[in-house]
Every structure is written in C-alpha cells, then in structure tokens.
Simulated assay, not measured.
Amino acid sequence: MPHMYILECADGSFYVGSTRNLDKRLWEHESGLGAAYTRHRRPVRLVYCEEFTRVDDAFAREKQVQGWSRAKGIALIEERGAEDLPALSRKKPRRER
C-alpha cells in the first residue's frame, strides 16, 4: 500500500516522503540509501504515516504536508488535527512598524 510518512531526524528536523513500500523505504533511510537529506541526519525515526489506495494520492499528500509550517506538522504528528490544524493554517497578522 502507498504511504505518506514523516521521519524525525537526529537533528530534530522532519522529512516528509511517500512510497509504495514503507518497510523498504524506512530501511533505505536508515541504511543511508534514502534521500540525501536523511543520509546526513541519521538515525531517523518514523513519527507519522498515512495509508492510501493510490500512489498519486500519497504523493499529493506528501507535497501538501511539505508546504506546512513546523508547528502544523507537529500538530499532525500529535494527531491534534481537528482542533489545531485550521488555526495553524491562518497567516499571522503583520506587525505595524
């Protein structure tokens, strides 16, 4: 089954990806054969994943989540979605100088 997944890297950053085979892809990231981003930030830990029936849906979700702020990503990981995600999507008002 296709998945969208989020990894927490050793430096505390997050990596968002999608794959047809989650177990194989996690092994690749851990072995240094995954993305260049995670290769230099090992070890990595799976902190979130969603399962899809279609690869293109998993890829679309990956791209959506990649565009989110760190705070919104953490809310998703902590499964605080229904109450927190909409508020985290709103832009903050600009400060006057």
Rank of each mutant, 00 (worst) to 15 (best):
R45H: 12
F59W: 02
Y15R: 10
L33W: 12
P86F: 09
V44W: 07
S69C: 10
I6F: 06
A35R: 05
E50F: 08
G73R: 15
Q64W: 05
E78N: 03
G67F: 02
S18C: 14
F14G: 03
A60R: 07
K63S: 10
R42A: 12
A35Y: 05
R90G: 00
E51Q: 13
A10P: 05
G73F: 09
T53W: 12
R80S: 03
K92G: 07
L7R: 15
A36T: 12
K63T: 08
R70V: 04
G81C: 08
E50G: 00
G81H: 03
R25F: 05
Y15K: 07
H40L: 03
Y5C: 09
A60M: 05
A87R: 04
Q64A: 14
D84L: 09
H40M: 02
G32C: 06
G32S: 06
L26G: 06
R41Y: 01
V16G: 03
R61C: 13
V65S: 06
R42N: 05
N21C: 09
Q64N: 10
I6K: 04
D57P: 02
M4G: 13
L76P: 00
R54G: 02
V47T: 08
L76H: 02
R94W: 04
V47F: 02
K63P: 01
I77T: 03
D84A: 07
I77C: 01
E78K: 00
R61G: 04
Q64L: 14
R80C: 00
E62R: 02
G73L: 13
A82C: 05
P93D: 06
P43H: 11
D84N: 05
V65C: 07
R61H: 12
R20E: 14
L76M: 07
V16T: 11
W68E: 11
C49I: 09
L26P: 00
A35Q: 07
E83D: 13
L7I: 11
S31T: 10
E30S: 15
G73W: 05
I74N: 00
K72C: 01
L46N: 01
I74T: 04
T19D: 13
E96I: 06
G32P: 07
L33K: 15
L22P: 09
P93V: 14
A10G: 09
S13F: 10
T38I: 06
R42K: 10
D56N: 05
Q64G: 07
R70D: 01
R25V: 01
C9N: 11
S89D: 12
G81Q: 01
R54W: 04
D57T: 08
T19Y: 15
Y48G: 03
A58K: 09
K91T: 14
G34V: 06
R97D: 12
